[in-house]
Design a protein around this nucleic acid. Structure first.
Length: 874
RNA sequence: GGGUGUGUAGCUCAGGGGUAGAGCACUACGUUGACAUCGUAGGGGUCACAAGUUCGAAACUUGUCAUACCCACCA
């Protein structure tokens, strides 16, 4: 027996446990079945579920459950990410609470502390995934720092190094002075701010009157200047080229050089060149072989190459301006709108810094990754994201893969005493390569987190070992992820997979939007507008949240969270629950030998056709990754057709005494409910399973129940009942308009009718009276006298002439209008198709489409003509 | 500077060359034997603006305005 009220909390967690315990999430590994696989975008191991996850994982679970029900061999590969910077940051923050820093420990001790933290706070997110209903294969859960994945990382690194795809280089990189590490371009965010532009003079060597005026937003970097550049064709200033300017304060002469980088239109026309601290200047410096003077310490303070050793940049800037002013060299200061780079994690200003780093040759690796998208082997959904992908991939820069952190995969590089490099998968092999007496020291850098994530699609399946899973499930079927991660992850997986596997990591990439707050604002902790998915689950159930996500997911659009809407979908689950209770009360038991194609009652034929229609819609839309359309199809069918009409129409049958009709209707209702549970299961796995298990005992489990095949819909079965629904709606409408008192006895009569309406009316009399709440309905054909009518309806207080209910005159007018419109269309199609210019020059597909439309219009016209005939009889 | 979206009911958004849609909110009525987490009926829109294509445009094209985001640069 079902509980009287739907309460998801009563069963959701238990159902999940039963799935997990009975191995329902494991692939069936049947060789005769197609494989379907998804690798989960790994959440941070110590993270918490946010709304973006809830959307991302819900969509994947829908696809996984759908394909599992199709009978495929399905794998949803689970795993978590070590999230280098993010995790190290959290652990360092905790240490800071005790007044400690990571430098109070050895590297090994610190890394152990991180593992402890993982053991302590990891696993929260995996619990949350369970709560959401994600049917991942837990037995295969991986972690980017586990032994197997670490081995994969080392193997790839060594191979790439030996092929020259990984190299060490002294270059300017984005330096995060908080974490004291290099970061990649993608980890730098540009923020608009109003800063200051400082104009001041550098004296010319050997002259007390001549100056070169320069403009800068960062005067404190002047101590790293090694030249002043002037455009060779700058008429005003080119006479200075070849002379030396003197850096004030430190009185250091630097050459004035000719370089086209110095735009005569911008600033003062003369540019101070600081090769060690500016990306453009770095290039200029290389062109002119300028010395590169580093003026910063790793912690972002100025170093001994400046007069302000140990001072931070802000104070150094003030000091520099003070000194320039007292030397009489300051010209002016202006407000200047500018963009300043910040570290996305640390929030501190990022400084370009000249350091030795490891780089991957992304431009070279991108070639194949681009090709595979061009030739369609990897397809973006929606398609327009491939433009974003191409744009970035075609302009890709070498990828700085080294980080000066402690938490992460240490690069497999060892140095001999002479600095000779040995790149091997482990220390023994490095030692072997170096010779056993050579003392080796290991490079202290670790790899960018995204380096290991880049291997995710194959490393989780067992690479580099031989593995059945790799054979069966690679390439994976689809990657589901947010657009913000295309560069970080999708692009890197494409590059790494093409390198290691020579095959794309996934055949498709489905890109979804961001989850925003109610007003469309980005959710962020600092704004305080985040909504915790677990609170929503607690309040409305996981099914409601999942259905919300699916129903709101339209390709390429962000989702605004809306609690009232989630509540609406909870109500939907309640509605289904109660419909199931209705079935239960009326003893609608599932019977395995029921044949839905043999039902006889029009109502039952109708609902069977409706189910097929809905199932087809859901299937087609899921196949095309149209989540909202597919969710809305089920929703409308369940509420609008099954609950609002079918159940109501069965009541006269159930409360009547025709046992034969009752039996058929019971079986049909049970079958329909069964189908509903199946097609709704990917979206609302919990409530559907709870109902499936409780209402009728079957052999199979819902989670692996077969998905309905797409069948042809019996259109005739739809028409009769649709006719009746229209009639009932009209009567109800009229009743409301007439503002009748409650309990007024009503009767309706239909004056004159064609044989079909007559037959229908007879057949549906009980249903119509029940649903339109009529006392009686009668049909007269031919001439009707007032007496005849009043005699039949003597008990009724009010008579409704049905000819007035269905306004045949208006209906006729409407049909005539439609006919005229159709004729006009047909005229248009005919003209086009008879035009040789169109037929010969337009693409064949367009002509076909036009023909198809013409045929469709013809079909419609026939229908309209038919309808007109019917109406004209009245 | 380059690019990508979006503009439809009070709100949040689907749709898409042929009668303008959903959920929520709103109004009136209703506790009838699944359900008030409900039912029935209703009100509410120049589909941002302009021009073009078309028999027909809210949909296609171009432009304008508004808005969001991405990339690059800024001495």
């Amino acid at each position: 027996m079902l509980e009287k009220t739907y309460n998801p909390k009563d069963f959701e967690e238990d159902i999940y446990k039963s799935w997990e315990n009975s191995g329902d999430f494991k692939p069936n590994m049947r060789k005769d079945r197609d494989a379907f696989s998804i690798v989960i975008p790994p959440p941070n191991v110590t993270g918490y579920l946010h709304m973006g996850h809830a959307l991302n994982y819900t969509l994947q679970d829908i696809l996984i459950r759908y394909n599992r029900m199709l009978g495929k061999n399905v794998l949803w590969q689970m795993g978590t990410d070590h999230a280098g910077i993010a995790t190290q940051m959290v652990v360092e923050r905790n240490l800071a609470l005790e007044g400690l820093s990571r430098h109070d420990f050895t590297r090994e001790e610190f890394v152990n502390k991180v593992w402890e933290w993982k053991a302590h706070s990891g696993g929260v997110i995996t619990k949350q995934l369970r709560r959401l209903g994600c049917s991942v294969d837990w037995g295969r859960e991986r972690f980017t720092m586990d032994e197997g994945l670490s081995r994969a990382v080392r193997k790839i690194f060594v191979a790439m190094y030996k092929e020259g795809l990984i190299y060490k280089d002294k270059r300017l990189v984005n330096w995060d002075s908080k974490f004291q590490t290099a970061v990649s371009d993608l980890e730098v965010i540009q923020k608009e701010t109003v800063g200051k532009m400082y104009y001041y003079n550098y004296p010319i060597e050997g002259s007390d009157k001549e100056y070169v005026q320069i403009a800068t937003t960062r005067p404190e970097t002047m101590f790293g200047d090694t030249a002043v550049a002037i455009h060779p064709e700058n008429e005003k200033l080119k006479h200075l080229i070849g002379k030396n300017a003197v850096l004030p304060i430190i009185n250091k002469p630097i050459p004035i050089i000719a370089d086209e980088h110095a735009d005569p239109e911008k600033g003062t026309g003369a540019v101070k060149i600081t090769p060690a601290h500016d990306f453009n200047d770095f290039e200029v410096g290389k062109r002119h072989n300028l010395p590169m003077v580093n003026i910063l310490n790793f912690d972002g303070t100025l170093n001994e190459n400046t007069p302000f050793d140990g001072m931070d940049t802000q104070n150094a800037r003030v000091k520099t301006i003070d000194e320039l002013t007292s030397l009489g060299l300051m010209v002016k200061v202006e407000d200047n709108p500018m963009v300043i780079p910040y570290g996305d994690r640390s929030g501190v200003v990022i400084e370009p810094m000249l350091t030795d780093q490891w780089f991957a040759d992304a431009p070279k690796m991108a070639v194949k990754a681009i090709e595979e998208v061009e030739n369609g082997d990897m397809e973006f959904i929606p398609k327009n994201y491939e433009k974003t992908y191409f744009e970035w991939m075609r302009n890709i820069q070498p990828w700085c893969i080294s980080r000066q952190l402690w938490w992460g995969h240490q690069v497999p590089i060892w140095y001999g005493p002479d600095g000779k490099v040995f790149c091997e998968e482990n220390e023994e092999e490095a030692q072997l390569a170096a010779g056993k007496d050579v003392k080796l020291t290991r490079d202290t850098d670790v790899l960018d987190t995204w380096f290991s994530s880049g291997l995710w699609a194959f490393s989780t399946l067992g690479w580099p070992d031989k593995s059945e899973f790799l054979d069966v499930f690679y390439p994976t079927s689809v990657l589901v992820t947010g657009f913000d991660i295309i560069f970080f992850w999708v692009a890197r997986m494409m590059m790494m997979s093409m390198y290691a596997m020579k095959k794309v990591p996934f055949a498709k990439t489905y890109i979804h939007g961001l989850v925003r707050d109610e007003k469309g604002q980005k959710m962020s902790k600092s704004k305080g507008n985040t909504v915790d998915p677990m609170e929503i689950v607690e309040k409305y159930g996981a099914d409601a949240l999942r259905f919300f996500m699916a129903a709101m997911e339209t390709q390429g659009r962000d989702i605004n969270i809306s609690e009232s809407r989630i509540q609406g979908y909870r109500n939907f689950a309640t509605k289904l629950w109660n419909a199931a209770r209705f079935c239960e009360m009326n003893e609608c038991g599932f019977s395995s030998n029921f044949d839905e194609n043999k039902v006889t009652l029009p109502v039952n034929k109708w609902i069977v056709a409706k189910v097929k229609e809905a199932a087809k819609d859901v299937t087609d839309n899921l196949n095309n990754y149209r989540f909202s359309d597919s969710a809305n199809s089920v929703y409308q069918f369940v509420w609008g057709s099954f609950c609002d009409w079918y159940i109501e129409m069965t009541k006269p049958v159930f409360y009547g005494d025709n046992e034969e009709e009752k039996a058929e209707t019971r079986a049909t209702a049970a079958w329909v409910l069964d189908r509903i549970l199946v097609i709704l299961h990917p979206f609302m796995p919990f409530v559907t399973t709870e109902l499936w298990d409780n209402i009728a005992k079957r052999d199979g489990k819902l989670i692996t129940a077969g998905w309905p095949k797409t069948e042809k819909v019996d259109v005739n079965a739809l028409n009769d009942i649709d006719w009746m629904i229209e009639l009932i709606t009209s009567i109800r409408s009229l009743r409301a308009e007439m503002n009748l008192p409650a309990g007024a006895k009503l009767a309706a009569y239909l004056k004159g009718a064609d044989s079909k309406s007559l037959k229908n009316m007879k057949a549906f009399e009980t249903i119509i009276c029940s649903l339109a709440r009529l006392e009686k309905i009668e049909v007269f054909s031919g001439e009707v006298s007032k007496d005849m009518v009043q005699d039949v309806f003597k008990e009724a207080t009010i008579l409704i002439p049905l000819a007035g209910v269905v306004d045949f005159a208006a209906e006729k007018e409407r049909l005539m209008k439609e006919l005229a419109a159709l004729d006009k269309n047909l005229e248009g199609y005919a003209r086009k198709l008879e035009n040789p210019g169109f037929v010969d020059k337009a693409p064949a597909a367009v002509v076909e489409e036009e023909k198809r439309r013409q045929a469709e219009a013809l079909e419609n016209k026939a229908k309209v003509v038919e309808a007109l005939k019917r109406v004209e009889n009245f």
